[in-house]
Design a binder for these strands. Structure first.
Length: 576
DNA sequence: GCCGTTTTCGGCCCGACTGTTTTCAGTCG
């Protein structure tokens, strides 16, 4: 964890501690907001402090700047140390329990000395609890249910897992008579790399009945809420067990306002609303109002238009400067999935893939691609059945034959070559020179200090025959942290040597991630968006890669695999 | 605790659902 993340975590905890102590809610929010902005800063906070610019971080004023400074200088924040003595860390963890909020927890903490999960469970089973106002039988039962969900709770669900599930549910809802326009909203629509729940919006002429039918669907294990416009359920084993699915049902006159509202993010919506207030408008999920008069609501476009803004694509709605860009009319013209002309990172049965060259190429052709690069592993990746020089030659022969046979798509001979711990590549230069596409990646020796790892990857960037660095930070979301690499230096070197960085669309990776991609393209670095497909259906993960790139404000011009075959081949051959 | 082309003080997004509140508080998103 770097200093930014450490400080963000402490502020987040302070916020939670204050909420359990029932402090000023705006102070609580102030700490949360500062935590978010510091964690997304994209710049070393120590450097920012040295330039005396801490208060230039949104949400960081004089007080919080002093606390950041204190942490940098002493490794401690006195306020946090003090609060920790009163409010145990284990207690604020309990805020994640559904149905148990800060008010109740505060009461249990102050009156019944609850300090941990086991304390809480004991208290809920005891008699004393029944003395408390607002904590009758049903509420206690709800909290107990929350505890059991909390105990089973997994980490946030991966985008690539949640998206297909949302499509199944959308289909099921569309089959309810009278529904129309069922779409995904929330963080899933924004293509966040992980999601906490699945938000779905639909229109219906009988909202109550639609919610009711939704809560009775076969995949539902638990119903958390069921009202006239909103239902909330927990999915059972037939889907991704434990994930929460929320449905909102509105009429057509409010569809756009509701979609805008439920797509979030929260931070984006707060900005949108305060903008509305300044213009003398009021905005909620039913529409935009001037006094009692509704001025917008049917479409998202008109909601933004009523505020004097152009439409803001969902992937940008994170309050990362999109409001300002919209006001100045400088929003990026984001890349579309249909701009992609081919996939430059795929595997076949020659290494650890499950499909042959021919099968991969034919699937790529069906997607309308003009080219596909087959980039199997190099010998050091033993587990992945990396190709020896001899097998590489044999593969080349098969690939050339397939290329002749299959018309309408160019099959490129490539490799995903290992960057070995000493920074050398797993094939000699004279071999790399003969390949159409060379992607260099780290697959072993992850535990290195940042200096060594960065140098290791930079030596691959400097190799004249490397085209791109594959999954540059090596993370596996929810499973493995990224290795330590100085992204800024990597970007600088990629720019200097004219090399591309990959946005790997494989859903456990999504690497580079949104904030890093944005940094790279803003610096002028070209990227490739690829799937790392090991089977034909994984070629469809391009959608996730493009979504991640869109979250990184990427335009078509920054992406090499939007080039037509001829232009791409020209670019690739610059390194020969 | 932050922030300011309406404010350096007084705001800080807004509504649905639930429970036990007979008019509203807590939780959630």
């Amino acid at each position: 964890m770097n200093k930014n993340q450490e400080i963000a975590l402490i502020f987040e905890r302070i916020s939670n501690m204050l909420s359990v102590l029932d402090e000023n809610p705006f102070k609580i929010r102030a700490y949360k907001k500062a935590a978010l902005n510091i964690s997304e800063l994209g710049e070393d906070i120590v450097e920012r402090a040295e330039q005396d610019g801490l208060t230039s971080i949104p949400g960081v004023g004089k007080d919080l700047a002093a606390k950041v400074k204190e942490y940098i200088d002493t490794g401690k924040i006195t306020e946090y140390e003090k609060l920790s003595k009163t409010v145990p860390l284990e207690l604020i963890e309990l805020l994640r329990i559904q149905g148990l909020g800060p008010k109740t927890l505060s009461l249990l903490f102050k009156e019944l000395k609850v300090r941990s999960l086991s304390d809480l469970e004991k208290v809920l089973d005891g008699d004393e609890i029944l003395e408390f106002r607002g904590l009758a039988e049903k509420k206690i039962k709800d909290i107990k249910k929350g505890i059991s969900i909390f105990k089973e709770s997994k980490e946030r669900t991966l985008l690539g897992v949640a998206l297909p599930i949302s499509e199944l549910i959308i289909n099921a809802i569309e089959n309810i008579p009278g529904t129309e326009g069922t779409v995904v909203a929330g963080s899933l629509r924004r293509f966040r790399e992980t999601v906490r729940d699945i938000d779905i919006l639909t229109m219906s002429d009988n909202t109550e009945e639609t919610v009711k039918e939704f809560t009775q669907m076969p995949f539902v294990k638990d119903v958390l809420a069921s009202g006239s416009t909103k239902g909330s359920v927990i999915a059972g084993d037939s889907l991704n067990a434990g994930i929460q699915v929320d449905l909102r049902v509105v009429g057509p006159e409010s569809y756009g306002a509701a979609l805008q509202y439920f797509s979030g993010s929260k931070a984006h919506n707060v900005r949108v609303r305060s903008l509305a207030t300044k213009k003398g408008l009021k905005i909620n999920e039913y529409g935009v109002y001037k006094g009692d008069k509704k001025v917008a609501g049917e479409t998202e476009h008109e909601v933004y238009e009523s505020l004097g803004l152009p439409f803001i694509p969902p992937e940008l709605r994170e309050d990362r400067g999109e409001i300002e860009a919209a006001l100045e009319n400088t929003l990026p013209d984001l890349i579309e999935l249909s701009d992609i002309k081919g996939d430059l990172h795929t595997h076949t049965t020659w290494s650890d893939g499950k499909a042959t060259i021919k099968e991969m190429a034919e699937s790529a052709k069906k997607l309308g691609y003009s080219y596909i690069a087959i980039t199997d592993h190099s010998p050091s990746s033993v587990i992945a059945n990396g190709l020896s020089l001899k097998r590489l030659a044999l593969k080349k022969k098969e690939l050339e034959e397939a290329d002749k046979k299959i018309k309408g798509i160019k099959i490129l001979m490539g490799t995903e070559v290992d960057i070995k711990p000493d920074g050398t590549l797993d094939y000699p230069d004279k071999v790399l020179k003969e390949l159409d596409v060379v992607i260099a990646s780290v697959h072993s020796g992850f535990k290195m200090d940042i200096e060594t790892m960065t140098e290791r990857i930079l030596s691959a960037v400097r190799n004249p025959y490397v085209h791109a660095i594959g999954h540059p930070t090596g993370r596996l979301i929810n499973e493995r942290d990224p290795y330590e690499v100085d992204i800024d230096r990597l970007i600088e070197a990629a720019l200097e040597h004219g090399k591309a960085l990959e946005v790997n669309g494989s859903y456990p990776r999504l690497d580079l991630k949104d904030l890093h991609v944005r940094k790279a393209v803003e610096a002028g670095v070209k990227i490739i968006i690829s799937t790392d497909a090991h089977r034909t259906e994984q070629l469809l993960q391009m959608k996730l890669g493009v979504g991640t790139a869109r979250r990184g404000w990427v335009e078509k011009d920054s992406v090499l695999n939007t080039l037509e075959t001829k232009e791409l081949l020209e670019w690739l051959s610059m390194y020969r």
